[in-house]
């Protein structure tokens, strides 16, 4: 989402427009979810962090001074909550084993059902191949790409807030990770 539309929806939501709030939630939820996924939390922990992030955003709605940066605010809040959950989990269970980004095919979405149709079988296969190649990447690449693949594409400010890395380092790392992904796919004869 671009800053202008975020800013406008934000102002409308502060003014009591529930439809604007819903549009904000729909537009920025994939970013929040990507941040949670990028940190490799378990399903249950990830859902709690997602909710805490949005509850807190609603609570702070009238106190946030730079509406157009709402995406960065959400990404940063989600990141901090993820880090706390990771710390708390390690403390309770030193040998914890979070389900890192491993979710291929456990929930069938309506989209999944559609692409399962016979005429789309080839595309479904390609999606699975791309996802499985993505999961073979190293942790750093998986973390960055999982945030970058939010829809709509997050700005680098938002990515920076989501992962605590400098804006300037995102481009070069992204390029390297996507090249690696391309190489993985090429190895399997996928273009």
């Amino acid at each position: 989402m671009d800053r202008d539309s975020i800013g406008k929806l934000f102002q409308a939501a502060v003014g009591g427009d529930a439809a604007a709030w819903k549009a904000l939630v729909e537009g920025l939820s994939p970013l929040v979810w990507s941040v949670v996924r990028a940190h490799g939390l378990t399903e249950a922990d990830g859902q709690e962090v997602y909710q805490t992030t949005w509850f807190r955003f609603a609570q702070h709605l009238r106190r946030i001074r730079e509406p157009e940066k709402a995406g960065s605010w959400l990404a940063s809040t989600a990141r901090h909550e993820c880090l706390k959950v990771i710390k708390a989990t390690r403390r309770l269970a030193p040998t914890d084993d979070p389900e890192v980004l491993d979710r291929a095919g456990d929930d069938r979405t309506p989209e999944q059902s559609v692409i399962d149709a016979e005429e789309a079988a080839a595309e479904a296969e390609r999606v699975r191949q791309v996802w499985s190649a993505f999961q073979e990447l190293g942790e750093n690449c998986k973390r960055l790409l999982r945030v970058l693949m939010a829809s709509p594409p997050p700005s680098y400010q938002e990515v920076s807030a989501a992962l605590g890395i400098a804006v300037g380092s995102i481009g070069p790392i992204r390029q390297r990770c996507l090249r690696r992904l391309r190489a993985h796919l090429a190895e399997q004869g996928i273009r």
Binding site: S29, P30, V32, W33, S34, R37, Q47, Y50, L101, R103, A104, G105, D107, T109, E111, Q112, I115, V127, R128, V130, W131, F134, L145, R146, L148, M149, A150, S151, P153, R174, L178, L181, R182
Partner: peptide, 16 residues
């Protein structure tokens, strides 16, 4: 390639 990942994420790991 990034767009393809975005497409895959929307299908395989969407916001519940």
């Amino acid at each position: 390639l990034e767009d393809m990942l975005r497409h895959a994420a929307g299908i395989i790991d969407p916001v519940p």
